[in-house]
Design a protein around this nucleic acid. Structure first.
Lengths: 106, 106
DNA sequence: AATATATGTAACCATATAGGAACATATTAG
DNA sequence: CTAATATGTTCCTATATGGTTACATATATT
């Protein structure tokens, strides 16, 4: 497999619905691993591995507090995705315009 | 596996760098399968399968012209991703503000 | 010190994914 | 009709992914 350019890890990280849900959960504020896992139906190790992927993508930061670990969101790498999307914004604009024109009979 | 909510297929589709490259290529205009594959180092079947994933995500449309097939981009499903990102835009704004404040020593 | 708690890691499994070579199908050219 | 062309599909392989249970490690509690 390719060396996983840092850009790609973000796209890969958000590809999984559980990981997106974790990010959504972290938007409400930092939580420790146990509380986070409790919000999901998967096992704690499963969530732990998802968190690891998110950490590798720099989307989640970890703060150790005694035996606990607090996870918090870092949305900055998402700008990568936003940037990529920018290149398509004009396209879907014109797609919508075209649709609108068609609906209006030109 | 989960029933693959239509939203998720888009995230999954753009997770692969080759597929993003295909979309980027299609932004320059529609191409037929052969021309498209010629632009990549992978085999034609490999590209064909990537295109299939993109079609399932409704990101690519196919037009049959005799024995050729023209592929074109349909960026509309990307709005799904853009919409999801919106929920984070304010966050990275404040992240950057915080960084800026720190750099400015306040 | 001994026990309990919080959490990651290892080992293992099933399935998904990406890729290639060979084959099937459809359409156009001669 | 037959050959050539454009393209998808099948089959197979290797690796990645997501998940679980059992185990390891670190920190707190008593």
């Amino acid at each position: 497999m390719a060396p996983a350019r840092s850009g790609n890890t973000v796209f890969r990280a958000i590809a999984d619905p559980t990981r997106r849900a974790i990010l959504d959960r972290l938007r409400a504020g930092p939580v420790n691993a146990g509380a986070l896992a409790a919000d999901f139906r998967q096992s704690r190790p499963a969530i732990s591995k998802h968190v690891r992927v998110l950490k590798e993508a720099r989307l989640v930061t970890e703060t150790r507090l005694g035996r606990e670990r607090l996870y918090a969101i870092d949305p900055v790498p998402l700008q990568n995705v936003a940037g990529w999307l920018e290149g398509y914004r004009s396209f879907w604009q014109t797609s919508l315009d075209r649709l609108k024109r068609n609906l209006e009979g030109t």
